[in-house]
Amino acid sequence: MKAFLRDNKGFLAFLLLFGVFRTAVADWNPIPSSSMRPNLLEGDVVFVNRLAYNVKVPLTDVVLARTGEPRRGDVVTFTSPEDGTRLIKRLIALPGDRVEMRNERLVINGVESDYLLQEAAQELAAGTTLQARRIAETVDGHQHRIQVLPQLVVPRDFGPVIVPQDSYLMLGDNRDMSRDSRYIGFVPRHRLIGRAERILVSADYLGNWMPRTERFGMSLR
C-alpha cells in the first residue's frame, strides 16, 4: 500500500484537488427530465457556479461564508428538502415575498406577472407529442420563457403564501411537469448548491444522440 501511494501520489493529489474543485468551486449538472423546458432540454449539461451564493464544507450543506445573494430569475441547483435529491429550478420568490398563483399566473407582492403567449409542440417520446403553450413570463422585470400543457389536469393555483426568511420559492419552467416548491415546499438557503450559468454541451439522448452544437455555450442569464 505504501508503495502504491508513493508511486501514484501525483495522480492521487490530482483526484483530491479535482474532487474539492467539483464539490466546492464549480460543477456540471446533466439535465435528466423535461421540468425546465423550453429553456433546458433533456441531454443538456450545465455549468454550475458553486461559489455564487455560499462557500461550503465539501460534500456537506455546512455554510462557511456567504459570497452573494440569490436573485429572482436565477436558475439554481439545490438539494430537495423533501428527499435530498439534486434538483434544478428557477428562483421565483425571495424571503418575505407574498406569492400566489391563479390559473398559472403568478402574483408577487400584489403585482401580477406579464405573459405573452406563443403556441408550440413538445415531443415527449418518440412518435408522441402534446400541444404546448410557450410563454414569455415577466416577473418583477425579469423575463424568461415557460411552458404549460393545457391538456393535463394539474394544480394551477396556490397561495397566497409568505416566503420564510432565508428560504426561496422555486418553480420549474415547464410548469405542468415539474416537482418544485408547490410540492416540496420552500428551499432553505443552506440547501442551495449553486447558480447554473450556461450550457456546456448538449446531445439529443431521447433521439439519435446527435450533439446539439447550437446549444453549446448558451447562456442561462
Rank of each mutant, 00 (worst) to 15 (best):
R179W: 00
V55H: 06
P155W: 10
N208A: 12
L64S: 15
S35H: 05
P160T: 15
S34P: 07
S167H: 12
E119I: 11
R98F: 02
V46S: 02
R175V: 00
E100W: 04
S181C: 15
D176N: 14
G43V: 11
E104Y: 12
A203N: 10
A120D: 13
Q122I: 09
L206P: 02
R86F: 09
L12G: 13
M36I: 04
P81E: 10
W28S: 03
T85K: 14
R90E: 02
M101S: 03
Q165T: 06
P160I: 10
P81K: 09
F216H: 13
Q165V: 01
A26H: 05
V99P: 01
V46L: 03
F47L: 13
F4Q: 12
D157Y: 14
R134H: 09
R50W: 12
L91C: 08
V153Q: 10
Q151H: 05
K89P: 00
A132N: 05
L152W: 01
I108R: 01
H144D: 04
G194E: 09
T129V: 07
G207C: 09
E69G: 05
L87V: 05
S181P: 07
L16C: 13
L171Q: 11
R22E: 03
P81F: 10
F216V: 12
R72Q: 11
H142M: 09
P70G: 06
L64P: 11
Q151D: 13
M177V: 08
